[in-house]
Amino acid sequence: MKTSRLNKEIVIECAMELVDESGINGLRLNKIAERLEVKSPSLYTHTGSITELRHTVVGRAMEEFRAQLVDALLGRANLCAFVELGKSWVTYAKKKNDFYIVFYQKEYFLFH
């Protein structure tokens, strides 16, 4: 995936894909650099440390999860809202399991 203009958003999206594939502990700057076909040092301008990037990626995933939960509740004012909320919760947990598990790890749970 050769990129002509590297920016923070491209790096974050790539990092999120890598977490989906290999979990939060599998997220490495050298893997991102390899996938984006750039040198690792060029990523520091856009990411800071790997710890900062992990927090950013987990924060983004939490935002997406919250948005899905809100979407499940919109327009519903009765028991169906709770059913839809539960369905959305389970769907996310299955589809994005690596992120879902990280949400409950102390270092990320307290951060967001």
Rank of each mutant, 00 (worst) to 15 (best):
M1K: 07
K2Y: 08
K2R: 12
K2I: 09
T3S: 04
S4E: 14
S4G: 01
S4H: 08
R5S: 08
L6V: 12
L6W: 07
L6N: 10
N7Q: 01
N7I: 00
K8V: 05
K8F: 03
E9A: 12
E9D: 15
I10S: 10
V11G: 03
V11Q: 03
V11P: 02
I12L: 10
I12F: 05
E13R: 10
C14E: 12
A15I: 08
A15Q: 08
E17N: 09
L18V: 06
V19I: 13
V19N: 04
V19D: 09
D20P: 07
E21N: 08
S22V: 14
G23P: 07
G23I: 07
G23L: 03
I24Y: 03
N25Q: 12
N25K: 13
G26N: 03
L27C: 04
R28M: 12
L29P: 01
L29W: 01
N30L: 02
N30W: 01
K31H: 02
K31G: 00
K31F: 01
A33M: 05
E34D: 14
E34A: 13
R35N: 06
L36E: 08
L36Q: 07
V38G: 06
V38D: 02
K39H: 09
K39P: 00
S40W: 00
P41E: 06
P41H: 07
P41D: 06
S42V: 05
L43I: 11
L43H: 11
Y44E: 03
Y44R: 11
Y44K: 13
T45G: 03
H46N: 07
H46K: 04
H46D: 04
T47L: 02
T47D: 01
T47S: 14
T47V: 12
S49V: 06
S49W: 08
I50P: 03
T51C: 00
E52L: 02
L53Q: 03
L53R: 06
L53H: 07
L53E: 05
T56M: 11
V58N: 05
G59M: 02
G59V: 07
G59R: 14
G59N: 14
R60H: 10
A61V: 10
E63T: 15
E63S: 14
E63M: 07
R66Y: 10
R66A: 11
Q68I: 00
Q68T: 04
L69K: 12
A72Q: 05
L73V: 13
L74P: 00
G75L: 05
G75F: 08
R76H: 15
R76T: 11
N78L: 04
L79F: 09
L79R: 14
C80E: 15
A81M: 11
E84V: 00
L85R: 08
L85H: 14
G86F: 02
K87R: 15
K87M: 12
T91S: 12
T91D: 15
T91Y: 04
Y92H: 11
A93S: 15
A93H: 12
A93V: 10
K94G: 00
K95S: 14
K95H: 12
N97H: 10
F99E: 05
Y100Q: 00
I101P: 00
I101L: 10
I101V: 14
V102W: 01
F103T: 10
Q105L: 05
Q105T: 11
K106S: 12
K106V: 06
K106T: 13
K106F: 02
E107D: 13
E107T: 14
E107Y: 02
Y108Q: 04
F109S: 13
L110D: 14
L110T: 13
F111W: 12
H112N: 13
H112K: 09
